[in-house]
Nucleic acid binder design. Structure first.
Length: 159
DNA sequence: TCTGTTATTGCGC
DNA sequence: GCGCAATAACAGA
């Protein structure tokens, strides 16, 4: 199976996607990039025109991945909502700290919406830049209040 | 094995 | 508020 690569702009950043067939292998953010083809579902999500990335699988959710349980729980968080590290921990039986480690190593942000995981008393962290997480949450907040009509709760004031 | 690395939490002051 | 200890699990040596 041939691996494909592409990129899409998101605010000040670029979203780089690597995939093959219907499986996303890696998603990463960087300051540089060139616009090129990526799966339409991902592109629309990044542009705030779609509330979930359907029809695509992530290797993070596949059998054998050490953090599969955690990523599955995260993938079920609805658009525009957030959970804390300890909530995900309680659901999956992992320690909050471990959830943090799993999020940091998340190979496919967006597909596994790790930006929706916040600390109990703050925003938590994000790699490589915390501002990306803030921007993603802001975008979801706005779009979910407009055309996705969803109530927004739990987003910390620190944004 | 053992050590270092975490995107956490909660308690005491 | 801040500092600190408890804590789970992986990666690399």
């Amino acid at each position: 199976m041939a691996m494909r690569k592409g990129a899409c702009r998101f605010g000040y950043w670029w979203v780089h996607v690597e995939w093959s067939e219907d499986t996303i292998h890696r998603v990463k953010f960087s300051r540089k990039g060139e616009d090129s083809y990526i799966p339409p579902a991902v592109r629309q999500f990044v542009k705030g025109k779609r509330s979930k990335i359907s029809g695509l699988k992530s290797i993070a959710l596949s059998d054998g991945h050490p953090y599969r349980e955690i990523y599955n729980a995260v993938a079920e968080i609805p658009y525009g909502e957030t959970r804390t590290y300890s909530e995900i921990g309680a659901e999956t039986g992992f320690h909050a700290r471990t959830v943090g480690v799993a999020m940091r190593r998340n190979p496919t942000p967006l597909i596994v919406p790790c930006h929706r995981i916040v600390a109990k008393n703050g925003i938590g962290g994000f790699t490589p830049e915390i501002d990306i997480k803030k921007a993603l949450l802001e975008m979801e907040k706005k779009t979910s209040n407009t055309h996705f009509t969803k109530k927004n709760k739990n987003i910390p004031e620190v944004l």
